[in-house]
């Protein structure tokens, strides 16, 4: 018995020592890495990450009092049975997440539970277990009249999913979800905006989403060693080229002011401008992509 205990203790010590050695190796490697970092410091930056607003933030940005919820614009939950392979399920998950964001931001709460449950089912199929769970669905049922709670649930669930995917090195999945979500956001936004008019404030806001799309596209490019991400990046490339045709008026330089409370005010800077031709081309490209995604 004592022999077994000594053996077990010895084994644990060896294991612990092994870990220490690994740590030692990591430190040695990090020592070397620090030298590399010193070299990279001269080049200034070690790495760049891309972030882009969530679907909730996109709809909060474009929402105005004049815009009403249009149920014909969202992807019907009955379509969910059409998505059979992992790529189409992941993209469709993004589409439904954008639909749920549209539903909650535009306060059509009767639709929220069905869309939440659809997102839950799809997220299980693509093995995302930590967000959009059924406990939260029960919270939705309890909060159907509480607008702020429903918005918070939608934001928290998305945020939880993003953290889960990043921490589990599944950024490729996030890239596909975000692609589906952004195309759905654009599809709804272009439908709400209607025909081109230079004075339409919603069109001005849609143009501003160019930067968000640029960051999303750069994010896709980083992960395009994954075949599915590569395919989606190729699908989005013509749209990226069209967004690049939006004119940038650089006549005003950025100025930074500060108010008496220390709050900064960024004024001036590049303004984006679009003409009718480019607007219609982007709109058509979005509609065609959305058709492929759903």
């Amino acid at each position: 018995m004592r022999g077994r205990i000594v053996f077990l203790l010895g084994g644990l010590l060896i294991l612990a020592n092994g870990c220490n050695n690994t740590t030692g190796k990591q430190e040695a490697a990090q020592g070397g890495q620090n030298d590399t970092i010193a070299v990279q410091q001269e080049k200034k930056f070690q790495s760049v990450y891309y972030r882009f607003p969530t679907p909730n933030e996109v709809f909060s940005f474009i929402k105005s009092e004049k815009l009403a919820f249009d149920p014909s614009l969202i992807n019907p939950v009955s379509n969910v049975s059409k998505y059979l392979d992992s790529k189409s399920q992941t993209i469709a998950l993004g589409v439904y997440i954008a639909d749920l964001a549209y539903i909650t931001i535009f306060e059509s709460y009767n639709n929220s539970l069905a869309y939440y449950k659809t997102i839950h089912n799809l997220s299980e199929k693509v093995r995302i277990t930590s967000a959009y769970d059924l406990e939260v669905a029960k919270r939705i049922e309890r909060n159907l009249q509480n607008l702020d709670s429903l918005k918070n649930i939608s934001v928290e669930s998305y945020s939880s999913m993003v953290e889960f995917l990043i921490m589990n090195n599944r950024e490729t999945t996030l890239a596909l979800i975000a692609s589906g979500a952004y195309i759905e956001c654009f599809y709804i936004a272009f439908n709400l905006a209607g025909k081109y008019s230079p004075s339409n404030p919603l069109i001005v806001k849609i143009i501003d989403l160019k930067y968000a799309f640029d960051n999303l596209y750069s994010y896709l490019e980083i992960y395009s060693d994954n075949q599915q991400v590569k395919e989606v990046a190729q699908q989005l490339k013509p749209l990226k080229s069209l967004f690049d045709q939006i004119r940038e008026d650089k006549s005003s330089k950025t100025r930074v002011k500060q108010d008496k409370n220390g709050h900064l005010i960024f004024e001036g800077g590049t303004k984006l401008q679009i003409d009718e031709k480019v607007y219609n081309e982007i709109r058509n490209a979005v509609f065609s992509l959305r058709q492929k995604f759903i």
């Binding site: 990090q30 890495q33 620090n34 970092i37 010193a38 410091q41 200034k44 930056f45 070690q46 790495s47 760049v48 990450y49 891309y50 972030r51 882009f52 607003p53 969530t54 909730n56 933030e57 934001v155 998305y158 945020s159 993003v162 990043i166 930067y211 968000a212 960051n215 750069s218």
Partner: peptide
């Protein structure tokens, strides 16, 4: 939703691009 955390070591510079 653009908030994030990351691992750093001393002497390291990193950046992320937000909108």
């Amino acid at each position: 939703g653009q908030s994030r955390s990351a691992l750093f070591t001393y002497g390291m510079t990193s950046q992320f691009k937000m909108v």
